[in-house]
Computed example of a mutant assay.
Amino acid sequence: MARAGLTPDRLVRAGAELADEVGFAHVTASAVARRFGVQVASLYSHVRGTEDLRTRIALLALEELADRGDAALAGRAGRDALVALGDVYRDYAREHPGRYDAARHRLDPQTAAASAGPRHAALSRAVLRGYDLSEVDQTHAVRLLGSVFHGFTSLEAAGGFEHSMPDAQESWTRILLALDTTLRSWSA
């Protein structure tokens, strides 16, 4: 172990913190090395480079989000579950903007399949069990939920709702209610 006590976990966590501070796009192996006061070469026995570091941060973020989703959905169904899961994504993006961006980092198919990504789809499907949807309709609805949750959250994070009234929270509440109505009447 290097004198700075470097481990893959410490590097990934430092990279995740850096992402929250300066943005995921600005996380590099050299920026993380500077945090530890070491040369970039010192990182290479723990991570293969910037892309490997970013992938590991993405995996961490996906895991954190899935853990929050599991906790939020426990004992909830229908609209309550829908609101809880939507709030998990929105709250995480507010608390950890860089990690949230990392969670949407493109992963190769093998890495994605082994990540917490499939847990996110399972969380959405758990919400959808409270609605009368066929298997195929559930797939469409999972995509709808992801589009709404990530779309609203991304626009809000970019400041898209700061210059108009009503407050973004009011819109969020109404959007989730509209989603609930849409899901309840989907088959009609």
Rank of each mutant, 00 (worst) to 15 (best):
R3C: 00
L6F: 06
L6V: 10
R10N: 07
E17K: 06
L18W: 02
E21S: 12
E21L: 12
V22C: 02
V22Y: 05
G23N: 05
F24S: 02
F24V: 05
A31S: 15
A31N: 04
V32T: 11
A33Q: 12
F36Y: 10
V38W: 03
V40K: 14
A41L: 08
S42P: 09
S45N: 14
H46K: 15
R48H: 12
T50K: 10
L53P: 13
R54A: 10
T55V: 15
R56G: 11
I57R: 02
L59N: 05
L60F: 04
A61P: 13
L65M: 14
A66W: 00
A71H: 03
A72P: 10
L73G: 04
L73N: 03
A74F: 02
A77N: 01
A77V: 09
G78C: 01
A81N: 05
A84I: 04
G86M: 08
V88S: 06
Y89E: 11
R90C: 05
Y92S: 07
Y92E: 09
A93Y: 09
H96L: 00
G98F: 08
G98V: 06
G98N: 08
R99W: 02
A102E: 12
R104Q: 14
R106K: 12
L107E: 11
D108W: 10
Q110R: 14
Q110P: 03
A113C: 02
A114R: 15
A114S: 11
S115R: 02
A116W: 01
A116R: 13
A116C: 13
R119W: 04
R119A: 13
A122Y: 00
L128S: 00
E135F: 05
D137Y: 06
Q138K: 12
T139C: 01
R143G: 15
L144V: 14
L144S: 09
G146V: 02
S147I: 01
F149K: 11
F149V: 09
S154Q: 13
E156T: 07
E156A: 13
H163W: 07
S164I: 08
S164P: 00
S164N: 04
D167Q: 12
Q169D: 14
S171G: 11
W172P: 00
T173R: 10
T173Y: 03
R174S: 09
R174I: 05
L177E: 15
T181V: 11
T182A: 12
S185H: 13
W186D: 03
S187V: 08
A188W: 10
A188N: 10
